[in-house]
């Protein structure tokens, strides 16, 4: 049938429709394929989470040795016992010992299974709005038992946690009224949600999730001593590059 038409109208070329259709499809394939292929970096890239997912311009940095430095990113939940264990045994010392050489970024990833995790993240972010995120981060983990646990189990005592956060805020020297207002604000809630969304994009499923230069740190050791040694070894290896 199409043949007849071409002959009847005397046209030797395919119709404008066919040409345009082919054009659209070809352009789409070339653009998609081209971007996909040229965007491919070294083979390592496949196991590396892009840095714009892990770090935002306004992300909180415990230590800052610049953007070119070895970067550690931790997605954490303030009430998760493993995170508190990492803090006490690994990251607190890393922060002290490597502070001048690495950039250590912390992101919120409060898990639903911890009833006070979101509240604690809000406290840290609210302190951050007065420039004291790092101080609140340390207070929350240094005093973990005082608010996160009840008789050794995960606590759901909101009143006690709020009282503890107020104490920390006062010790840090925060404007308490503003601290409370910020904790309840949409800005703080949105920021935590954005952190969590980035964590999901980085395929974080549990906490703590630590990335060294974009590579997920997955220790094989059973004790915190072994984990700390492995973490330091990987940091040293990256620093030596």
């Amino acid at each position: 049938m199409p043949k007849e038409k071409i002959v009847a109208t005397g046209r030797a070329w395919p119709s404008a429709n066919v040409l345009l259709t082919i054009g659209v499809v070809v352009v789409a394939i070339v653009v998609l394929g081209g971007v996909l292929l040229t965007g491919k970096d070294d083979p390592l890239a496949s196991s590396t989470v892009p840095s714009d997912v892990l770090v935002n311009e306004n992300s909180h940095r415990l230590t800052d040795a610049g953007d070119d430095a070895v970067t550690v990113v931790e997605f954490l939940d303030f009430q998760c016992p493993a995170c508190a264990g990492y803090y006490a045994n690994v990251t607190k010392e890393v922060e002290r010992d490597y502070g001048d050489r690495i950039t250590f970024v912390v992101r919120n990833f409060p898990l639903d299974s911890h009833p006070l995790a979101m509240l604690a993240a809000k406290a840290a972010e609210a302190a951050g709005r007065q420039g004291e995120y790092e101080a609140m981060y340390h207070s929350l983990y240094d005093n973990y038992e005082r608010w996160a646990l009840t008789d050794g189990d995960i606590s759901d005592d909101t009143a006690r946690a709020r009282a503890a956060f107020d104490t920390f805020a006062k010790e840090i020297g925060l404007d308490l009224k503003r601290f409370h207002a910020d904790m309840a604000s949409d800005a703080v809630a949105d920021r935590i949600a954005a952190d969590r969304a980035d964590g999901e994009r980085a395929e974080v499923t549990g906490t703590p999730a630590l990335f060294i230069n974009g590579h997920l740190f997955s220790p094989s050791g059973d004790t915190f001593g072994e984990v700390e040694r492995q973490f330091r070894n990987q940091l040293d290896a990256e620093l030596a590059k």
Partner: peptide, 29 residues
């Protein structure tokens, strides 16, 4: 009707492009 398949191709390409952009990080890995 004269440009029937062109419109259809454009329609599909837009949706495919939206999918590609949305899940770019994933596809590129």
């Amino acid at each position: 009707a004269r440009y029937h398949s062109f419109v259809l191709a454009l329609w599909f390409v837009v949706i495919i492009a939206l999918i590609a952009v949305k899940f770019w990080d994933y596809w590129s890995t």
